[in-house]
């Protein structure tokens, strides 16, 4: 295809990305580096701050009077967990009833994460439908591509929200520290650490939102997902998006050696992370009697 067509495809996917994903990398990095004016995020770094911030999780707008007293100053030079000092987490709790309420709080937080993930699946679905040719594929194949691709896409979308110390949640209004997530009871404490490890490495590639849009489309259009009925048209679509991505990276990152190859390599790592994630969710279903998995996530993870 002509270079002009490939550039038009890149622009189209970037516009769809901006339309369907509420928190871009540009916005997230501004928040994380403290360049977001006075709107520093609420920081959750222990059970007490989780309790205080719980009502705002998944709110698009935190009321300013509730929000301000708990935020880190943007003047500290960005959001990190380093300034917060030692984090006791739940380890300092000895009282049985306190432990019980901490357990319930962790479970409620996990359910909030599920709701946001389900909403994320909706966003990714809308983005997928905007990929030229996607909605003309066999409907069963559209379902298969989303079933197998959506968690990979959500993990990639998480990377810009993370730094080595924590992650933005709640549309960028809350920063949750990595240490706090590690202090949760098993297996909750095991869920995010692999994503942090992946994200810190992925972020060194320094993709911007327009690169991300193309990369997400490449992931969605994977012709090797199990059970696909008509692989050829999917591979053809992916081939075009791959050409567009390669050209985009050459133009956007002229000095980054082998960026295209490095990025494609990440797709292999992603598959392992998703496999491990699904195993943890299956483990949770066994160990947490009160846990109910969101029906949309159940659909996706069943027989994955």
């Amino acid at each position: 295809p002509e270079a002009a067509d490939l550039r038009a495809l890149a622009r189209h996917l970037y516009e769809a990305y901006l339309k369907y994903f509420p928190l871009t990398k540009a916005k997230a990095r501004a928040i994380l580096s403290g360049k977001n004016g006075d709107n520093a995020p609420f920081v959750i770094h222990d059970m007490k701050s989780l309790m205080e911030g719980e009502q705002f999780i998944n709110c698009r707008q935190i009321p300013i009077q509730e929000h301000q007293p708990q935020t880190l100053s943007a003047g500290l030079g960005g959001v990190t967990g380093v300034h917060l000092g030692p984090d006791c987490g739940i380890l300092g709790m000895t009282n049985i009833s306190e432990q019980g309420s901490a357990d319930a709080l962790e479970l409620r937080f996990f359910h909030s994460c599920q709701s946001r993930s389900a909403e994320g699946v909706r966003e990714v679905t809308e983005f997928a439908k905007s990929i030229p040719g996607f909605i003309n594929l066999d409907l069963n194949d559209q379902v298969t591509l989303l079933k197998y691709g959506v968690i990979e896409v959500l993990i990639i979308m998480m990377a810009p929200l993370m730094n080595k110390d924590g992650t933005l949640i709640s549309y960028g209004q809350i920063f949750m520290t990595r240490e706090f997530l590690k202090s949760l009871r098993k297996p909750f404490c095991q869920m995010m650490e692999p994503k942090f490890e992946f994200s810190v490495k992925f972020n060194t590639l320094e993709l911007d939102d327009s690169d991300m849009a193309l990369f997400l489309a490449v992931i969605i259009l994977s012709g090797d997902r199990p059970g696909l009925l008509n692989v050829k048209p999917i591979e053809q679509l992916q081939e075009t998006v791959l050409h567009s991505l390669e050209l985009q990276l050459k133009l956007n990152h002229p000095d980054s050696v082998q960026l295209f190859a490095k990025l494609l390599q990440k797709m292999t790592d992603l598959r392992q992370i998703v496999t491990d994630h699904v195993h943890l969710i299956q483990l949770l279903k066994k160990t947490e009697v009160d846990m109910c998995l969101h029906p949309l996530l159940q659909e996706i993870m069943k027989d994955l």
Partner: peptide, 21 residues
């Protein structure tokens, strides 16, 4: 496959109307 993935299918089919998630 569509039968086993009703919500996903619904998300794919309904372009504008929000699905109750």
């Amino acid at each position: 496959l569509k039968e086993k993935h009703k919500i996903l299918h619904q998300l794919l089919q309904n372009s504008t109307s929000p699905v109750d998630l």
